[in-house]
Design a protein around this nucleic acid. Structure first.
Length: 532
DNA sequence: CAGTGAGCGAGCTTCCGCTTGACTT
């Protein structure tokens, strides 16, 4: 008998099916060891971490140990990334006590082929990856546990917190609020001309924008009872490529918007769909899709919508970190659907998005018309129109874009406006973040990971830093104080590029170019550098 | 005798990231 160990019990089930008789597959349920919660757990002089059993994990690993005793070979199939490598490292440390035949197997998708290849090519733990995890973990602990007390002391409130992720995130929310508070109402004025030609209504706008309506008045006088001549008509075809399939962030943002629920709820529902075997792994930053599945989906598109709607499997530029474990979020099969109404809505959203990503471009025809006042050719107006000439992917994943109709116009044609008027346009202040837009911003900045995006928001709420108001995140008084304090005292931590700086250093550790403790020391010094 | 400071004990807040299931409300 051989033993195969993964993180997720759902994966364990699938893999057990592929491997068949002679194999036992077990799951760790994520990390098994971590720094102790109630103390720093890091020797501040040597930076030596103290990893202890996570609650309930000793029991799980004891169970795995029992199986390991009887196993011929043991394969550590935890996720192929920093955190997964650390789990494998601690597993090996324990399992060596009962069996020395231990191998590290990595795979990037759960197919029979990928698993078989992983077993064939199994090797040993990558200690550089493990070291990078230590760096990340210890640095986060130092920042969290050493800096939070500053807030308790100086802001005289208990329960406040500082973190590499949460604090810059809070800064985003607070800075946006300040932009809104300091926003100067600004209005602009446009001159518009309305026409009806062949029963089609359209409007054209004067090339110049005015700060005050009185500035537009002299032009309005000149435009009294004026006729227009069509100077030029042009058009161009525009391709609209399909959207990418979902990853964690885009699913959270899109589903919370469309279904009107929190990103936390989206994530919990997605987890349930995953456990029921209806979708792929829901915590991923990748847009990759399994080739065979993509082929199958494209055949479905051809059967259902016709050949013209079949696109191709596109390659997307992935963030460096998205190299990791999992493909995009997609249905496992188009026939297996959930029963509950809300879950079905989410599943359908995921399915149609995955299908749309494999569908053809939509094609839009855009028109541009230039009109001149017949009496004075310096008075130039323009009109734009557009029309969807081929719906492509938008047939599968609806996108709301209205056509703007223009009548057929010939150069030199003279037309009479129905009316000419001044339109007031007020520039709106920037909006507060929604949970979805915040999570999108974090992903773009490289802050946080797919497994934590939803909990970051929860932490900010729990600390009393933000409240949800009509679906938007609003910072509290305390949030302003905390951000101002941290910006003054630890500006390097509050820099949106800090995580990127850390990641670059972790990359160096992973490549064996830097010592992990040196990276912690340097980064932590950088955080403190401001004053203290 | 007032003021200072060493020493000691009580209370104990907090990080990010990996994964679910066992809790409570």
């Amino acid at each position: 008998m051989n033993l195969f160990i993964v993180e997720s019990p759902t994966k364990a089930k699938s893999i057990a099916k592929y491997l068949g008789n002679g194999w036992v597959v077990r799951a760790t349920l994520g990390h098994i060891k971590d720094l102790p919660e109630r103390e720093l757990g890091v020797d501040i002089k040597t930076l030596e971490p103290k990893y202890v059993w996570l609650k309930g994990k000793k029991k799980i690993v004891d169970g795995i140990k029992k199986a390991a005793k009887k196993a011929k070979k043991i394969y550590l199939g935890t996720d192929p990334d920093r955190e997964g490598e650390a789990i494998a490292y601690f597993l090996k440390e324990e399992l060596l006590k009962v069996n020395t035949s231990i191998y590290r197997a990595t795979f990037y998708e759960i197919t029979k082929k990928a698993i078989t290849e992983a077993i064939g090519g199994a090797s040993d733990i990558n200690l550089n990856l493990v070291s990078a995890q230590f760096s990340r973990r210890v640095l986060d602990r130092l920042i969290g546990y050493k800096l939070s007390p500053f807030l308790w002391r100086d802001l005289k409130e208990r329960g406040l917190s500082v973190g590499r992720v949460q604090s810059p995130t809070l800064r985003l929310i607070v800075e946006r609020e300040r932009q809104i508070q300091n926003f100067k109402r600004k209005k602009y004025y446009y001159i518009k001309a309305e026409f009806v030609v062949d029963g089609v209504e359209f409007s054209a706008v004067f090339k110049q924008r005015f700060e005050k309506p009185s500035n537009a008045e002299p032009f309005m006088k000149k435009l009294k009872d004026v006729m227009f001549v069509v100077k030029s008509v042009s058009k161009e075809m525009q391709k609209e490529p399909p959207p990418k399939p979902f990853n964690t962030v885009s699913l959270q943002a899109e589903a919370s918007k469309i279904l009107g629920i929190s990103v936390d709820k989206v994530q919990k529902m997605a987890q349930k769909l995953y456990e029921e075997g209806l979708i792929t792994y829901p915590r991923t930053d990748s847009y990759r899709m399994n080739k065979e599945k993509a082929q199958e989906f494209m055949k479905y598109i051809e059967r259902t919508y016709g050949k013209d709607y079949v696109g191709r499997l596109r390659k997307y530029k992935e963030k460096a970190l998205a190299w990791g474990a999992h493909e995009c979020i997609r249905p496992t099969s188009l026939d297996k659907k959930p029963e509950s109404v809300l879950e079905l809505k989410l599943w359908s959203l995921i399915s149609s998005r995955a299908l749309a990503s494999l569908s053809s471009d939509a094609i839009r025809e855009k028109f541009f018309v230039v009109l001149l006042a017949l009496s004075d050719h310096t008075l130039e107006f323009t009109a734009e129109g557009s029309k969807l000439v081929f719906d492509g992917w938008t047939r599968i994943y609806p996108k709301e874009v209205k056509d703007r109709a223009l009548p057929h116009l010939e150069e030199g044609q003279v037309i009479k406006p129905k009316r000419i008027y001044i339109e007031e346009v007020e520039v709106p202040p920037p909006p507060r973040y929604t949970e979805g837009s915040l999570v999108r911003t974090l992903e773009n900045l490289g802050i946080g990971r797919p497994s934590t995006y939803a909990t970051i928001i929860k932490t900010l709420k729990d600390r009393g830093y933000v409240v949800l108001e009509k679906g938007y995140l609003k910072p509290t008084e305390m949030a302003f104080k905390v951000v101002d304090y941290l910006m003054e005292k630890f500006p390097n931590l509050m820099d949106y590029g800090f995580t990127k700086y850390m990641e670059d250093n972790l990359d160096a550790v992973e490549e064996g170019k830097k010592d992990w403790k040196e990276v912690v020391r340097e980064s932590y010094r950088r955080v403190l550098n401001a004053k203290e």
